[in-house]
Amino acid sequence: MDGPSPPQPPLPAPFTHTHPAPTLLTQGAEALLYCTYFLTPSHPCALKYRPSKPYRNPILDKRLTRHRILSEARTLVKCRREGVSVPGVLALDAEGDGVSGGWMMMEWVEGKTVREVLVAGAKRRKEGRDDEDGWEEGVTALMGKIGRAVGRMHEVGVVHGDLTTSNIMLGPLAAPQQNGVTTNGEHMEQVGEGLGGEIVLIDFGLAGQSLQDEDKAVDLYVLERAFGSTHPEAEEGFQEVLKVYEESYKGAKVVLKRLEDVRMRGRKRSLLG
């Protein structure tokens, strides 16, 4: 998030009344992610706001926004019902008021992204401050948990569509939810930079429901590339992801077979788009 940030569209009603105002956490091409709270200030939540795009035809814009919000919510609700670890949907407004776009509120997820955890870990090792024995083992265990989470998601017929280390969260170790949340969006420094905690998959904006091995293999391929490019030291650990993935559900072996094909040719089979 460096450089001059483009002006952010103001939040639509009802969030114009919200006090304190939601804090912007991150911004993508389609949506803005805020930290705010649900019905009471003691119930933190994430607010994903999809502003309308002024350059789009208004009717098309409305339909796209509506479709994307509902599709993401649908996938999250399905995952949550089936026991895949994802943030639950608390409320949404896919209609907007015609001018301001739509939004969705999700459960707040404690912890850090796997990317943050691995980058911080690599930095500490570089600085030679790595006196923690068990970092390697910790990473391996983490990889296993990722493999299991992704396997579970694929088992219920959901593909993520953008499975990177930034879209996998690692919760704090003993995870009583609700506690210690900073509603102002500050990143809390955790005591003891642990690798424990529960894996939560986030950002289902590009997700869909698919039973095709190809789509699942592409998920794994994208994740593998994400590890390869940002965490070269953890690249070999990716084998552990695949190992646990393979054991996690019945169709996994076929998907791994398919992954070999995808590696050979890249993720776009159809050569479209």
Partner: peptide
């Protein structure tokens, strides 16, 4: 949380 999700989707 499952109920809230279903209410939010309302049949969609």
């Amino acid at each position: 949380v499952a109920i809230l999700g279903l209410m939010a989707l309302r049949g969609a």
